[in-house]
Protein backbone atom coordinates (compact mmCIF):
# COMPACT_ATOMS: atom_id res chain seq x y z
CA UNK A 1 0.00 0.00 0.00
CA UNK A 2 1.42 3.40 -0.93
CA UNK A 3 1.75 6.39 1.39
CA UNK A 4 -1.29 8.52 2.24
CA UNK A 5 -1.37 11.69 0.12
CA UNK A 6 -1.98 14.85 2.12
CA UNK A 7 -3.43 17.67 0.02
CA UNK A 8 -1.59 20.99 0.46
CA UNK A 9 -3.14 24.34 1.35
CA UNK A 10 -3.39 25.45 -2.30
CA UNK A 11 -5.18 22.24 -3.17
CA UNK A 12 -7.81 23.10 -0.56
CA UNK A 13 -8.00 26.68 -1.92
CA UNK A 14 -8.63 25.23 -5.39
CA UNK A 15 -11.35 22.74 -4.36
CA UNK A 16 -13.14 25.13 -1.97
CA UNK A 17 -12.87 27.86 -4.61
CA UNK A 18 -14.49 25.53 -7.14
CA UNK A 19 -17.41 24.92 -4.78
CA UNK A 20 -17.84 28.67 -4.13
CA UNK A 21 -17.64 29.30 -7.89
CA UNK A 22 -20.38 26.73 -8.56
CA UNK A 23 -22.62 28.25 -5.90
CA UNK A 24 -22.12 31.80 -7.23
CA UNK A 25 -22.62 30.78 -10.85
CA UNK A 26 -25.88 28.94 -10.24
CA UNK A 27 -27.32 31.49 -7.83
CA UNK A 28 -26.47 34.48 -10.04
CA UNK A 29 -27.74 32.84 -13.24
CA UNK A 30 -31.08 31.87 -11.70
CA UNK A 31 -31.44 35.27 -9.95
CA UNK A 32 -31.35 37.06 -13.31
CA UNK A 33 -33.31 34.39 -15.21
CA UNK A 34 -36.63 36.24 -15.02
CA UNK A 35 -38.05 39.49 -13.59
CA UNK A 36 -39.94 37.48 -10.92
CA UNK A 37 -36.78 35.66 -9.85
CA UNK A 38 -34.86 38.96 -9.78
CA UNK A 39 -37.59 40.44 -7.60
CA UNK A 40 -37.30 37.54 -5.13
CA UNK A 41 -33.49 37.75 -5.13
CA UNK A 42 -33.35 41.53 -4.79
CA UNK A 43 -30.23 43.62 -5.31
CA UNK A 44 -28.44 41.81 -2.47
CA UNK A 45 -29.16 38.42 -4.04
CA UNK A 46 -28.02 39.48 -7.51
CA UNK A 47 -24.87 41.44 -6.63
CA UNK A 48 -24.09 39.20 -3.66
CA UNK A 49 -24.13 36.04 -5.79
CA UNK A 50 -22.06 37.80 -8.49
CA UNK A 51 -19.48 38.71 -5.82
CA UNK A 52 -19.46 35.13 -4.55
CA UNK A 53 -18.90 33.90 -8.12
CA UNK A 54 -15.93 36.27 -8.61
CA UNK A 55 -14.41 35.25 -5.25
CA UNK A 56 -14.80 31.56 -6.21
CA UNK A 57 -13.22 32.20 -9.61
CA UNK A 58 -10.22 33.99 -8.07
CA UNK A 59 -9.74 31.24 -5.44
CA UNK A 60 -9.98 28.51 -8.08
CA UNK A 61 -7.44 30.20 -10.36
CA UNK A 62 -4.96 31.01 -7.58
CA UNK A 63 -5.33 27.53 -6.07
CA UNK A 64 -4.83 25.88 -9.47
CA UNK A 65 -1.74 27.92 -10.32
CA UNK A 66 -0.12 27.61 -6.89
CA UNK A 67 -0.81 23.94 -6.24
CA UNK A 68 1.29 22.85 -9.24
Amino acid sequence: MSEKVKPGIWSWVFWIGLIILAYGLVTFSTAIASPEAAETAGAIGIYGSLTVFVIGLIMTLIGYLKKK
Partner: peptide, 17 residues
Protein backbone atom coordinates in the same frame (compact mmCIF):
# COMPACT_ATOMS: atom_id res chain seq x y z
CA UNK B 1 -30.91 30.83 -1.38
CA UNK B 2 -29.33 29.03 -4.32
CA UNK B 3 -31.82 28.49 -7.17
CA UNK B 4 -34.52 31.15 -7.43
CA UNK B 5 -37.89 29.95 -8.74
CA UNK B 6 -38.40 31.22 -12.26
CA UNK B 7 -41.97 32.35 -11.43
CA UNK B 8 -40.74 34.05 -8.23
CA UNK B 9 -41.94 33.57 -4.68
CA UNK B 10 -39.17 31.35 -3.32
CA UNK B 11 -35.98 29.42 -3.84
CA UNK B 12 -34.23 26.10 -3.54
CA UNK B 13 -31.72 26.48 -0.73
CA UNK B 14 -28.00 25.74 -0.63
CA UNK B 15 -28.83 23.04 1.91
CA UNK B 16 -30.97 21.29 -0.71
CA UNK B 17 -28.60 21.75 -3.66
Amino acid sequence: PMIFYIFGGGFLSAGMI
